[in-house]
Amino acid sequence: MPEAPLLKVSDLRTHFFTDEGVVKSVDGVDFAVEQGRTLCVLGESGCGKSVTARSILRIVDRPGRVVSGRIEWRRKDGSVVDIATLPVAGREMRRIRGGEIAMIFQEPMSSLGPIHSIGDQIIETILLHQDLSKSAARDKAIQALRRVGMPDAERRLALYPFQLSGGMRQRAMIALALCCEPRLLIADEPTTALDVTTQANILDLMKGLQDEYRMAMLFITHDLGVVAEIADEVVVMYLGRVVERGTVDEIFHAPRHPYTQALLRSVPKLGSRGENRRLAVIRGSVPHPFARPAGCGFAPRCEQAIAGRCATIQPELTTLADGHQVRCLLYSDQAA
């Protein structure tokens, strides 16, 4: 029997209880991350991909709350714990957060404090999660900075985040995230704010580190190019739900859900110039969170919507014969 996945999320729902009403940011998300693999969560802004990531670490800001679902995390000893039921500030959650699962953000300054040197911050994190002497932790911090390709690591230990460039700051944050050798790294749009050349370097770095540690990655992005570069599996989200799930090759070469298909078509492709200067578009825009369509969330914008059905029936996530999953009525009779 194959090993259980490292992280298995089933039917996760995270809602925000605001004065204006309940915002169902995440409303039915299922996926699994295998050890040493990269899962990309792809979606446009407001689809709930970041909230999903934050739910896994239980760092959803109020008034948000994980209302249901399971987040099964396999510990090092093989036991499985449901993160969704752990106390948010409890000891076990603190050990998992930062120790076993680390997270990096789009904006490095949100995880690097401005008033401590990056060295101090890395050393402190190491001491928090590992039983080491201060000098051993320092050596480890220097190693961590070297591994993320920071030249002159010993000297840079004493620098403050504001003294580093954007790319170097991102590296420092990755070093901070990786210093405790986490088994899962959650990366929330880590390269979105970076320039292309820096983005390419950071992606190379992350791939290299993943191979080195056999670490799993949950990579959250809206950028199809990044997905193509880094993903093994892909989960496509729309309006808080997973609409499609498959391998990166299937998603790019045989997308099933009309949303995924339309999304792929609407991106300008290099070299397609001259053939057709108009891009295919998805009509309209993402509905306001308070005005979710009753049926399929994508139905009002969908070219293939079945009249009378898609607007009223909420489709289930269907598993097709090849293991590919899709949430769409067009495939409801093809379930494996």
Binding site: R283, G284, P287, H288, F290, A291, P300, R301
Partner: peptide
Amino acid sequence: MSAVAETLDAGDE
């Protein structure tokens, strides 16, 4: 473009 309008009209008070 009417779809844009519809989502808006439905969405906001």
